[in-house]
Design a protein around this nucleic acid. Sequence first.
DNA 1: ACCACTAAAGCAAATATTTTGCTTTAGTGG
DNA 2: CCACTAAAGCAAAATATTTGCTTTAGTGGT
Lengths: 187, 187
Amino acid sequence: MTTTPTPRPGGRSARIQAAVHQAVQELQQEQGRAGLTVPAIAKRAEVTPSTIYRRWGDLSQLLADVAIEQLQPEQPPADTGSLRSDLLTWLVEYFEEMSSAPGRAMLRDVLGTQDHACAGKCDGLLRQQIEVINERALARGEQPIDIGLVTQIVVAPLMYRILFANETPTTQAIEALLEPLVSSADG
Amino acid sequence: MTTTPTPRPGGRSARIQAAVHQAVQELQQEQGRAGLTVPAIAKRAEVTPSTIYRRWGDLSQLLADVAIEQLQPEQPPADTGSLRSDLLTWLVEYFEEMSSAPGRAMLRDVLGTQDHACAGKCDGLLRQQIEVINERALARGEQPIDIGLVTQIVVAPLMYRILFANETPTTQAIEALLEPLVSSADG
DNA sequence: ACCACTAAAGCAAATATTTTGCTTTAGTGG
DNA sequence: CCACTAAAGCAAAATATTTGCTTTAGTGGT
């Protein structure tokens, strides 16, 4: 039998990671990007800077890591009675978050890092959430929606506007993109 | 009468900027992102590091600036006889560039920087190119295409795949997205 | 419960980078 | 040709990053 599936999942690593992540979030809130330096984060987390450098490589990778954690949904999408409105409600909230200043900072961190897998996780989380909405729809007897189609038709254009046109999508804009996809059931 | 529309457009600024930009491109090619530090760039450009820090602020803003310059098309889109094929040809080339390693690095630089206007320029350049294709179509008597629709239906989904799914769009994928938009004239 | 093992953290010295105050250079308008 | 000034150079100071070595604290075996 092989051992240690993850090298050392023990309590210390986790504790340090939590302390560092929390320090990043606190400093980010208190002083924005300006106060975010590795030494400052290390000090707040009561950790040595070299710990951060050795574990995360550099500031941008640490920030990307924290950003991904923050993207992790705290609650599953709200159940509003139908797939159509679940999806709309969730998308509106998602893009509100993404186009806010902190959301944009998170996107910058995630897209600006070398870490290849990072942006992929972002897409993965989105799909997971839509999956939950789909499962609920299925349980209601509704037809689930093609997740790839949602990202292609709704998510991608909105993300493009946020990233490249510096726009903030309105609820109406989201609705307009979503409508053609859900024009089967509901009202 | 007011004077000096731009503060000091004179030869020195331009010379220094050109030297620094060139130094970035050379080092990037020779050693990838690893060899790209402000001191290294300064040395190659025969310039003082403080010049770079004072003009560009930091490395990421300099890289974003260079990336935007590299995005500047060297030639207008090829004239292939019809709007449909002009557009397809150009888009295939554009996304080939964007999904290559250097293209992805450029996107990271552009999207990862604080400089707000930077990603906007990227969108602006794209629109300009499609505009040229449109004008040529118009001259041929063809119906021009809605640029906003092209970015929404074709560009945004492809960009999303590059950025968030780490995919490399195939010609077929591009064609499939473009087809519904140009299904009026041509063949 | 103890012990040997080792991944990961701490520490501190060595490097590298960024910032800053002041000086010098070189376009610009008169 | 001269006075003016934006921008570059220089060098010292402040910060941040890397690195070799030491210490700490989970892990598995007994």
